[in-house]
Computed example of a mutant assay.
Amino acid sequence: MTSLNLTGIHHLTAVSADIRENKRFYTQDLGMRLVKRSVNQDDVSAYHLFYADAVGTPGTDLTFFDWPVPRERRGNHTVTRTALRVRDAASLSYWHERLAALKVPHGEIIERDGRATLDFEDHEGQRLALVEDGGAGDAPVPWDASPVPAEHQIRGLGPITMTVPNLRNTDLVLQRVMNLRPVRQYPDPESPAHTVHVYEMGDGGPHAELHVAVRPDLPPAHPGAGGVHHVAFRTPTEEQYHAWTEHFRHFGLQTSGEVDRYYFRSLYFREPNGILYEIATDGPGFGVDEDMTTLGEKVILPPRFEARREQIVAGLKPID
Results as ranks from 00 to 15, higher is better:
168 R>H: 14
171 D>H: 12
171 D>F: 05
172 L>A: 15
173 V>L: 15
174 L>E: 01
175 Q>T: 14
177 V>R: 03
177 V>P: 04
179 N>F: 13
180 L>K: 03
181 R>P: 06
181 R>D: 11
181 R>T: 14
182 P>G: 11
183 V>R: 08
183 V>W: 05
184 R>S: 13
185 Q>G: 13
185 Q>R: 15
187 P>C: 09
187 P>F: 09
188 D>Q: 07
189 P>W: 06
189 P>Y: 09
191 S>L: 15
191 S>F: 15
192 P>T: 09
192 P>I: 07
192 P>K: 10
192 P>L: 08
193 A>D: 13
193 A>S: 15
193 A>Y: 10
194 H>F: 14
195 T>S: 09
195 T>E: 10
196 V>P: 00
198 V>Y: 02
198 V>W: 01
200 E>D: 09
201 M>L: 12
204 G>N: 10
204 G>S: 11
206 P>E: 06
206 P>A: 13
207 H>Q: 13
211 H>L: 13
211 H>P: 03
211 H>C: 09
213 A>F: 06
215 R>P: 02
216 P>K: 12
216 P>T: 13
216 P>V: 07
217 D>P: 03
218 L>R: 03
219 P>K: 10
220 P>E: 14
222 H>Y: 15
222 H>E: 15
222 H>K: 15
223 P>S: 06
224 G>V: 10
225 A>N: 05
227 G>R: 01
227 G>S: 06
228 V>C: 09
229 H>P: 07
229 H>R: 09
231 V>Q: 02
231 V>Y: 01
231 V>D: 01
233 F>V: 03
233 F>D: 01
233 F>H: 06
234 R>T: 11
235 T>S: 09
235 T>C: 06
235 T>R: 00
235 T>M: 03
236 P>I: 06
237 T>N: 08
238 E>L: 14
238 E>C: 11
239 E>H: 14
241 Y>C: 02
241 Y>S: 03
242 H>W: 14
242 H>C: 12
243 A>Y: 00
243 A>D: 04
243 A>C: 08
246 E>K: 11
247 H>M: 05
248 F>G: 03
248 F>V: 05
249 R>F: 08
249 R>S: 12
251 F>E: 07
251 F>R: 11
253 L>I: 14
253 L>D: 06
253 L>N: 05
254 Q>V: 15
255 T>Y: 00
255 T>P: 00
257 G>I: 05
257 G>H: 06
257 G>N: 10
258 E>P: 03
260 D>C: 02
261 R>T: 07
262 Y>K: 11
263 Y>H: 09
264 F>G: 00
266 S>F: 00
268 Y>H: 02
269 F>G: 00
269 F>P: 00
271 E>R: 07
271 E>H: 07
274 G>C: 07
274 G>H: 11
276 L>K: 04
276 L>M: 10
277 Y>P: 01
278 E>N: 08
278 E>L: 04
278 E>I: 02
279 I>Y: 00
280 A>H: 01
280 A>S: 10
281 T>N: 02
282 D>E: 08
282 D>F: 01
282 D>V: 02
283 G>P: 10
284 P>F: 09
290 E>D: 08
290 E>I: 04
291 D>Q: 12
294 T>F: 04
294 T>I: 12
295 L>V: 10
296 G>M: 03
296 G>W: 01
297 E>D: 12
298 K>M: 15
299 V>Y: 02
300 I>K: 11
301 L>G: 05
302 P>S: 10
302 P>L: 06
303 P>S: 10
303 P>H: 08
303 P>Q: 10
304 R>A: 14
306 E>Q: 14
